[in-house]
Write a protein that binds this DNA or RNA. Structure first.
Lengths: 214, 214
DNA sequence: CCCTAATGGATAATTAATTATCGATAAAAA
DNA sequence: TTTTTATCGATAATTAATTATCCATTAGGG
């Protein structure tokens, strides 16, 4: 087996980041009853260069048709497959404050195969409450629930000061992927993946662009 | 004047994105009473390669001292200058829902020179209320307030369906920089800068990394 | 005062990502 | 049926970002 089947190329991170946009636009086309969507459509709507769109979509493995583009339903399935969004992932959220609540209330995640099954918080005043249909539990219930339900993903929305200990708790419980909204660099074992979401970096980019104008 | 003063090199976007991290770590050092901070300190704490840190910090224009690093107070000032975070920027926020509230409540922004002076929402039930000390106004009050206070930055945290019209409203009012948390690609005039924050793209990266394991 | 070792800074090499070029294809028009 | 043209897909060129190498500097130890 040297050069037979398709070589599983590694997908560039920027390409992965753009995929949800392609998915959203294609979904809009589906709702509008359109059957085909082309590179040109994407580049017009998303403000990207056509070449970049074509390169990105090549990673789906789909073949487009000249003058028509791609079949809308097939493309949606292909992108969801590529992102692993066809099979739903269960997750727990730690930190049921303002940001945690906002994330729990974001309807979009359900379409992205993310199912937040429960929230946890150190604040006794929050324990037992329901936020967007999810119950808030005490932290000492976390390990049991994660184990019992075989949950692999954890979302951290706690204050900076307790970010690392929260990560330790999740790792201890068996979590393999952490979506971290806490502005710290977490130390975790090699087999645990951390995706950090950083609002400050976005603000930094905006600030610089506003002052130096690019 | 051909090669006299320092050439104002353009700062790479990834470097700008990392700057808030350097700022945070340096701030911690200041609180701990340390006078110096080195590339090695940063790379240990942030999990970056020393070479990258050195290259990034070079853009501050500061000269480091071998075996000691950089002077903590000077570095903080230099990074804040570079990001334009020493002089505070006033901003308005449109969309006082869950996400908008979370952003208004994030204490960190004040340290980053961002001052959200007021919130606006189309929902009459929210108008007049106070969220984290900020009053929520009706949308028709926006233009007047923005003009009167000379506000240049707008934050969009409205649902997807009304993202574009919200942007139009802000542009009409004279806003020059938009921090957009709404999952749409906004169409704005060339002189208006849009920085889009996209939670889905982060989730996409995490999903792919979890399934293909890099 | 001299030696050692850690670190900064400049330059070069490598890798990753974007952008360009061009021939092939197939729908739509003539 | 033939021609036209928009779009795809492969390959190549360019640009951006990261990583490596090497020398200069200087605090700290002997």
């Amino acid at each position: 087996m040297s050069e037979d089947s398709q070589i599983q190329k590694i997908i560039p991170l920027p390409t992965i980041r753009r995929m949800p946009n392609y998915l959203r636009v294609t979904g809009d086309f589906l709702e509008e009853g359109k059957e085909w969507i082309s590179t040109t459509d994407f580049s017009d709507i998303l403000g990207l260069k056509p070449i970049q769109v074509r390169k990105d979509l090549a990673f789906t493995g789909l073949a487009g048709k000249p003058r028509l583009g791609f079949e809308v339903p097939l493309l949606i399935k292909a992108i969801n497959d590529l992102l692993g969004w066809n099979n739903s992932t269960d997750a727990v959220l730690v930190g049921a404050g303002a940001l945690g609540s906002a994330i729990m209330g974001f309807r979009g995640f359900a379409e992205h195969g993310l199912n937040i099954v429960a929230a946890f918080d150190a604040n006794p005043a929050l324990v037992g409450k329901e936020i967007h249909g999810k119950t808030v539990f005490a932290l000492d219930k976390l390990e049991n629930l994660v184990h019992r339900m075989g949950i692999t993903m954890g979302i951290i929305t706690v204050p900076e000061a307790v970010g690392q200990e929260t990560a330790d708790l999740l790792v201890e419980a068996g979590i393999k992927g952490i979506w971290n909204f806490c502005p710290v660099t977490l130390r975790v074992p090699d087999d645990v993946i951390v995706q950090r979401e950083d609002l400050s970096s976005g603000l930094a980019v905006l600030s610089v662009r506003l002052t130096e104008g690019r």
